[in-house]
Simulated scan of single mutants.
Amino acid sequence: MESAIKTVVSVYLKSAKGKESLGDKDFQTMVKKQLGNIMTETDSSSAIKEMRKGLDENNDGKVSFQEYMTLIGYLANTLSEEKTAANNAPAS
């Protein structure tokens, strides 16, 4: 678990390129490169832009680390629910 947390932090920091938050282009690049296997529509710039707007709680046009963690939490919860449902599905 420790390595997973370190990875989440390092991906954000690398994507932010030393800045305090992810701008539109940096966020789009990160989503396309890092989340394409677990999210749909990562090839759609407009869908990613809408996602960024939804995460941007303070409406500054950027994604802060805390806003990024909202995305990570949502994705982790969704994956957990999917795996739980798959494990509880009746055998055919």
Rank of each mutant, 00 (worst) to 15 (best):
L71D: 07
S92R: 08
L55G: 03
A86N: 06
A89M: 10
K33E: 13
Y68W: 01
T7S: 12
T70A: 10
P90I: 05
L71V: 06
M1T: 15
G73M: 04
V9F: 08
N87Y: 10
K83I: 04
A91D: 13
N58E: 07
Y12C: 08
T40M: 01
T78Q: 06
G18T: 06
I5M: 07
N77W: 04
T84C: 05
A47T: 11
G18A: 05
N58W: 04
K14L: 11
R52S: 12
F27V: 06
E20N: 01
E41F: 05
K25P: 00
L22K: 03
G23P: 03
L35N: 01
M51L: 14
K19P: 05
K25L: 13
A85N: 12
Y74R: 14
L13A: 11
T70S: 09
K83N: 06
G18I: 07
M51W: 03
I38T: 09
S80N: 12
A85C: 05
M69V: 14
L71H: 02
K14N: 15
E81Y: 02
T78P: 00
K83S: 10
E82G: 03
D56W: 01
A85G: 05
S46L: 13
D24Y: 07
F65R: 04
Y68K: 00
A85M: 14
I38E: 05
S44Y: 06
A86G: 05
E81M: 13
K33C: 10
D60A: 09
S45R: 02
A85L: 12
M39D: 12
G61Q: 01
E20I: 00
K53M: 08
E50F: 15
G54N: 14
R52V: 12
L35S: 03
G23E: 14
G23I: 07
S44A: 02
T42S: 11
R52F: 14
A89E: 11
I48V: 15
S10N: 11
M69N: 15
A89F: 04
D26A: 14
Y12A: 10
N59F: 02
F27W: 00
V8M: 07
E41S: 10
I72K: 02
